[in-house]
């Protein structure tokens, strides 16, 4: 083995230079041409950054469309899922509490109509999206809070809905932050 050690050391140093220095620098340089300059795409309101398009944030107020439950309360410096198994009694209790809370905030909604994603924690704790159905079910509450007609909110959701990739691949989704920014502009 001894005769291979020295070439190994030299090859290692060379590869560190190529793979850990040149390669990431190249990608960072190319990234400058990408949207957000490779730093992550931000969204602004009146010139002030209010968040990252791809990083979900906490919406708990009734006047906003709420996102999904998060195991880390949308801490974008420490992502995590709940890692709860379905047989865990604590988990079953948590889900029931989320349902009760949702019903309390959304009078008139029937329990069985609540979409699953609104009572289950996301994988990252930072899920930026909800499905169109999960937005629609909140329309009544927001219309009442903001005194807006429901059909305008429904149109807004339709406008903000991302179709599946190429029309057939993957789920439909609505970015909650974008939706709420657009919601704030409705008069």
């Amino acid at each position: 083995m001894k005769k291979y050690i020295w070439p190994s050391v030299k090859l290692t140093l060379f590869m560190v230079l190529v793979l850990a220095v040149l390669y990431p620098s190249l990608i960072a340089a190319v990234g400058k041409a990408a949207p957000g300059k490779g730093k992550g795409e931000t969204l602004s309101v009146n010139g002030v950054v209010v968040g990252y398009e791809n990083v979900g944030q906490r919406f708990t107020e009734d006047k906003y469309f709420n996102g999904r439950p998060s195991a880390v309360d949308y801490n974008a410096a420490g992502s995590a899922g709940s890692n709860k198994g379905i047989s865990n009694p604590d988990y079953q209790k948590t889900v029931q509490e989320r349902i009760d809370s949702f019903l309390a905030h959304n009078p008139g909604v029937q329990k069985e109509d609540i979409p699953a994603e609104l009572v289950t924690a996301s994988g990252s704790g930072l899920d930026p999206d909800i499905s169109p159905a999960a937005a629609m079910i909140q329309v009544k509450r927001i219309a009442a809070t903001r005194r807006l007609p429901e059909h305008r909110l429904q149109t807004l959701i339709a406008d903000q809905t991302h179709r599946p990739l190429l029309g057939f691949a993957g789920p439909e989704k609505v970015n909650v932050l974008k939706l709420n920014i657009a919601l704030d502009t409705l008069k």
Binding site: R68, G81, S82, N83, K84, I86, Y91, V95, Q96, I99, K111, E112, D113, I114, P115, A116, E117, V119, T120, A121, S122, G123, S124, D127, P128, D129, I130, S131, A133, G170, P171, K173
Partner: peptide, 18 residues
């Protein structure tokens, strides 16, 4: 979720909408 009686009982715990 089936047991609680939700119509949409998708297995979304730990999964992402997109």
């Amino acid at each position: 979720l089936h047991h609680i009686g939700l119509k949409d009982a998708a297995a979304m715990e730990g999964k992402e909408v997109r």
